[in-house]
Write a protein that binds this DNA or RNA. Structure first.
Length: 1137
RNA sequence: GCUCUCGUAACUCAGUUGGUUAGAGUGCUGGUCUUAUGAGCCGGAAGUCGCAGGUUCGAACCCUGCCGGGAGCACCA
């Protein structure tokens, strides 16, 4: 130890002794021997410590030592949901990763063997989007021109790059994983495992090609599944139109239809009504008759949205009622009313019957051969049809928005398509993969359907044809491409689906999972009920190559493994071999159908990325390569992810895939957590400037602080993340650090050696020692149960309380035991207690704050402790020890603490500061606590600066009382008669009842002629302070002080005040602790009198030798005020003659 | 629109099977302690427990309706 450090340490100790300077004279001679603990700087920099620990863990290979230690033990299987390796990790990821890490660390401390495998999600459009951005690409064509191989390689590179970055970030967070063994969903293993999964489904006949109308992005050139479309919904305003469909056999009569997507009118097939609605025939003043639903005529469309400006776009005017539109056109008359059912079959002229597509027999471009043969085209289908009901039984056509007559374009909408199939209608699908009109649409050919100019042209055309009734801006939520923001259109395309008619099996499995929070179960069921068949294909480049080969006879075949592919391959295998099963390499392989012998080629589609993530309980656990291994680790004990979205994404794909593969739940417990928001609860956005980058947070607030923040959060609620919250957490860590620093400072001076005792129980432990050891033991128990139940945030509350107890009661109350000069058994007990307590506490929170706990642990143990572990992370989680349990003692000290707190409260209420001594603390309790208090009276009196405790049996002395019925007890007895009972009690003589309660006598009551008994415990006595007492009560006790101060008490208070000022004066003029002084004081008679009366005490405390001796010349005085009166204090070092 | 969920102090949230005077932290504010602590401690102000009914002797809690926030699902032709 260096000389400076030594001096500081000694000063640290002697400085403390100013208040009882008589002891310090001996203290100063204290000479330290060699010490075991390194000096601790009380000014701590957590971030430096974190970097130091990272280096240490790395250099000393601590993580691998941990794995080695637990190898072969009972297993705890954690399954990591893959993080998308497409961008750096953010603070929102850090929450989940902290939870993952801390539960893993906890189970490691229990000695379990873990796999520690992290996962990266690699494939999918996300990555393509970013690579496209980098290359400045605008469309799929650009990629094809660039070359798929180049493009796919760039996607792979991007994933490699960001998985490395995320790995480094995660390490900084303290996330312990087997980083060299992370799984990548783009791996061959993972892809082939999905092949095997699809093969099983294929064998069960669950894979099919559907030609459905699906949401499609022209810019991205791909369709969207039910899952994805939810992400991209946006509120927009469309130019919507009311259009006439003139009836064929009724001159000057038209159906009035409404649409927000005028481009679909080109492909109109039919008009649907609701058979049970009433329809009006409204004649406008030009003599034309319009059919529309009666209810819709005066319906105020989107009234609420407009009024409350919810889901409304600024600038869009209020929507008019249909009636108003008619009025504005010159008025109307109602010509008649007709049932929907009576409209069925009416034929009409479509708005775009002149287009070639409308005239194609069998539809366009997908031709229904049957209808083609019957020479049926769209125009022939133009009839009024029954809208029918949807799957759940709701009407497809409803009154309200629109006109009650719905334009049906079977090639442009999912429901339209279904209705079309049901009614055997042709279909016209007008758009190509860039959302442009195909060739059979006349002047529209090549126009982009979502382009506003196209809409304008269509509306103009309708106007010219005198078919337009009205056009208006209509705000609504419409699906958009989540990546490009492009408005989606509906296209009829071939996509590949998994028939999900086996959803019941998944439902069953859902119930075998422990969902935290438990409503997760319900949410998952809800999704399963709602979901349609699973669209697994995507017309893109970077992703799972769907192992589906198609043949000329319209059949298809699913290949289940690389080996099978090799077997069936008849062309292109050599080009493929050695490459990953991705496009474009896989596309070269042609196979021979094992049954028909036809030659087929692979469909160009890639797979839905949730297949990639859902297969990991099989692919990463070597299901195909090593079943034994798989059995050991499957199902996972634990999974934790961010909730939003995952019910339909990862959880869904996991459950679905495991159902097929093994018909079991892939994990036992799922902990979901909410989202990270900024400190005010808003989303974090780069553009709003409120985003916090992980690196910034790590280096500014520190990752232990971050982790603490995450751990303390109830995962059900969104986390408000920010530097303010971090400061609160840092305070806790500082308190812990200071407790540790206190310990080390004095342990060094006294050369405390934790090896000097073998069993702490054999030391002469004080009551407080037993108390804190019992407390920490309780903390072990409760912590373990919170860890086991994945409720770490509740544990953190307990930890905060414990640290407070440790620092603000145990250490504070025991300081003198550490300061005193003798190295007696009491002091050893104090050191040992504090030492053991800190170490247990550290272990409890080591999984949460791995850095600071290891830093402290290393110094405390550092070769001197019998555990002799290199790192706290190689230790076992502490176990609860019955021998330390002591409920009574915990209760005793906790009572003492609350009495002290209440005593302070009394003082504060009476405005009497702590320094003013008081004679009596008055305690009244309805429990027997007098013995307990007596046993601890010294501490209580010291804390409160009071001379003695007085118990009173008669609270009358300090309080009056009120009597109250004890509702919860009485209700059990009297139930409905409570009111009478309450009236009775309240109307009794207070004193009489009070006496009965006090002397435990029953009270009789007459209820409608019957006698009943009220027991004393069924009455509550409430105290109200009287006179000059300041009183505070809680449920158990009443604490009071007399606020009238005697003359001598006041004088004592004055002396105390002066002593304090002199002590700080001594420090200011740099006197040594043992220096004697001469004192002079100018002040009132009362002050001088006070000092004279308490001279001995005064002299002792400040080491005074003389007082107001005129012969001594003084320097400048210190001017102070006591009780508002100015006094001057002079002191001077006394020189012996 | 349907389902779920929440609504408690300025803010963030507790609040047990319905029971006595609805709590904590932060912030504000007043006081206090004096140092292992960057602190700590004790007060105060601040509440129509979203609103309105109902059940009950008694409702923040249970029921109904409404209003408001959030989420999920569907639809917006």
């Amino acid at each position: 130890m260096g000389a400076t450090a030594f001096k500081a340490a000694v000063l640290g100790k002697t400085k403390r002794c100013v208040r009882f300077a008589h002891a310090s004279a001996i203290k100063i001679n204290f000479m330290p021997k060699k010490t075991k603990f390194k000096k601790v700087d009380s000014a701590v920099n957590f971030i430096d410590i974190e970097h130091e620990m990272l280096r240490f863990w790395d250099e000393d290979d601590i993580f691998n030592k941990l794995r080695k230690k637990n190898k072969g033990n009972e297993k705890w299987s954690f399954l990591d949901g893959p993080i998308t390796a497409n961008n750096p990790m953010g603070v929102h990821h850090a929450w989940g990763r902290t939870l993952k890490d801390l539960y893993q660390r906890y189970h490691s401390m229990l000695g379990k063997e873990l796999r520690y495998q992290n996962g990266f999600d690699c494939q999918g459009l996300w990555v393509e989007v970013e690579v496209e951005k980098e290359l400045g690409f605008k469309s799929k064509r650009d990629i094809e021109e660039h070359g798929i191989e180049n493009f796919v390689n760039l996607c792979k590179d991007r994933v490699r790059k960001f998985s490395k970055i995320q790995t480094e970030q995660s390490k900084r967070l303290g996330y312990w994983m087997d980083w060299d063994n992370s799984y990548f969903t783009m791996s061959d293993e993972n892809n082939y495992a999905i092949w095997a999964f699809l093969k099983k489904l294929f064998d069960d006949g669950k894979i099919y090609k559907g030609s459905d109308v699906v949401p499609w992005s022209g810019r991205s050139g791909t369709s969207y599944s039910q899952m994805e479309i939810i992400e991209g919904r946006k509120l927009v305003s469309h130019l919507s139109v009311f259009v006439k469909f003139p009836l064929k056999k009724r001159k000057d009569e038209s159906l009035l239809v409404w649409t927000t997507t005028p481009w679909t009118l080109t492909s109109n097939i039919a008009a649907a009504v609701n058979v049970s609605l009433d329809y009006l025939m409204v004649k406008s003043n030009d003599g034309h008759i319009y059919y529309l639903a009666e209810e819709n005529f005066k319906f105020e469309r989107l009234k609420k949205q407009f009024k409350e400006k919810k889901q409304w776009i600024k600038g869009v005017p209020k929507l008019k009622t249909l009636e108003q539109i008619f009025k504005e056109r010159g008025g109307y008359t109602i010509e008649g009313k007709i049932k929907g059912i009576d409209l069925i079959g009416l034929e009409y002229h479509g708005p775009f019957d002149e287009l070639p597509a409308q005239q194609q027999y069998g539809g366009f471009p997908f031709v229904n051969v049957d209808l083609e043969n019957k020479k049926i085209n769209a125009i022939k289908c133009h009839k009024v049809i029954d809208g029918g009901k949807d799957g759940i039984g709701n009407d497809n056509v409803v009154a309200g928005e629109g006109t009650g007559i719905v334009h049906i374009a079977t090639g442009c909408g999912a429901i339209d398509n279904k209705i079309g199939k049901k009614n055997n209608l042709v279909s016209i699908a007008p758009l190509d993969d860039e959302s442009k009109y195909l060739d059979e649409f006349g002047w529209l050919n090549g126009l982009v359907a979502t382009d506003k100019k196209t809409t304008d042209k269509i509306i103009n055309d309708l106007k010219e044809k005198k078919l337009l009734f009205y056009a208006e801006q209509y705000p609504h939520v419409y699906p958009h491409c989540w990546r490009s923001g492009d408005e989606l259109v509906f296209r009829t395309v071939d996509e590949w689906y998994i028939n999900m008619d086996w959803r019941d099996k998944i439902h069953k499995i859902v119930d075998n999972i422990n969902w935290i929070p438990d409503w997760g179960n319900e949410k998952e069921h809800e999704w399963l009920n709602n979901m349609g068949d699973w669209m697994i294909s995507k017309k893109r480049f970077w992703g799972l190559a769907l192992p589906i080969w198609t043949f000329d006879d319209n059949s298809f075949y699913v290949v289940g493994s690389k080996e099978e592919l090799k077997e069936l391959a008849i062309e292109g295998w050599d080009d493929f071999e050695g490459n990953s099963p991705h496009r474009p390499w896989i596309d070269k392989v042609k196979i021979k159908h094992p049954d028909s012998g036809l030659i087929g080629k692979r469909i160009p589609d890639v797979g839905n990325p949730w297949l990639d993530a859902g297969i990991v309980p099989f692919s990463t656990l070597k299901y195909n390569q090593d079943k034994e291994y798989w059995k050991q680790w499957y199902p996972a004990d634990f999974v934790t992810e961010c909730f939003p979205g995952q019910f339909r994404n990862w959880f869904y794909s996991l459950l679905a895939m495991s159902t097929i593969m093994d018909n079991t739940a892939p994990f036992k417990t799922l902990l979901g957590h909410a989202l990270v928001k900024d400190e005010t609860g808003r989303d974090m956005h780069k553009s709003w400037g409120n985003a916090i980058w992980f690196e910034d947070a790590a280096e500014k607030m520190g990752v232990d602080v971050m982790r603490w923040l995450y751990a303390s959060q109830n995962p059900e609620q969104n986390l408000r993340f920010g530097y303010g919250a971090a400061d609160e957490v840092r305070k806790r860590l500082i308190t812990l650090w200071n407790t540790y620093s206190f310990f080390v400072t004095y342990a060094r001076l006294d050369n405390f050696d934790p090896n000097s005792y073998s069993n702490i129980k054999k030391l002469t432990l004080s009551k407080l020692d037993h108390w804190i050891l019992a407390k920490v033991n309780e903390l072990v128990k409760i912590s373990q149960s919170y860890y086991d139940n994945f409720q770490i945030f509740k544990m953190m509350d307990e930890v905060v309380k414990f640290i407070d107890n440790l620092s603000n009661w145990y250490v504070r109350r025991n300081r003198r035991r550490f300061w005193k000069s003798e190295n007696d058994s009491d002091k050893i007990a104090a050191y040992a207690t504090l030492y053991e307590t800190i170490i247990v506490l550290l272990k409890i929170i080591a999984p949460v704050t791995p850095f600071i706990t290891d830093k402290i642990y290393k110094n405390l143990v550092s070769g001197s402790n019998s555990e002799n572990n290199e790192s706290i992370h190689l230790t076992d989680f502490p176990s609860y020890n019955n021998e330390w349990a002591n409920k009574d003692l915990i209760n005793e000290i906790d009572t003492v603490i609350s009495i002290v707190t209440m005593g302070r409260s009394c003082r504060n209420l009476a405005n009497i500061k702590n320094r003013q001594p008081l004679n009596e603390l008055i305690i009244y309790s309805n429990e027997k606590i007098d013995k307990l208090i007596h046993n601890n009276s010294k501490q209580i009196l010291e804390e409160l600066n009071i001379k003695k405790i007085k118990f009173i049996e008669n609270v009358d002395d300090i309080i009056s009382y009120k009597i109250k019925p004890n509702f919860s007890l009485l209700s059990k007895k009297f139930g409905k008669n409570m009111k009478q009972v309450i009236d009775f009690i309240i109307n009794q003589d207070t004193k009489e009842i009070y006496d009965k309660v006090k002397y435990k006598k029953d009270i009789s009551i007459n209820l409608s002629g019957e006698n009943h008994i009220i027991n004393p415990e069924e009455i509550i006595i409430e105290e109200v302070p009287i006179n000059n007492y300041s009183v505070v009560s809680n449920k158990k006790y009443t604490i009071g002080i007399n606020t009238l101060l005697s003359d001598s008490l006041i004088k004592e208070g004055i002396v105390r005040d002066i002593i304090r000022h002199i002590q700080s004066f001594r420090k200011e003029i740099n006197l040594n602790v043992e220096d004697r002084i001469d004192v002079k004081i100018d002040g009132s008679e009362q002050i001088l009198d006070a000092l004279t009366t308490n001279k001995e005490y005064f002299f002792n405390e400040v080491l005074a030798v003389s007082f107001n001796q005129k012969s001594i010349k003084m320097n400048e005085p210190k001017k102070i005020k006591i009780n508002g009166k100015k006094i001057n204090i002079y002191i001077k070092k006394h020189i012996e003659e």
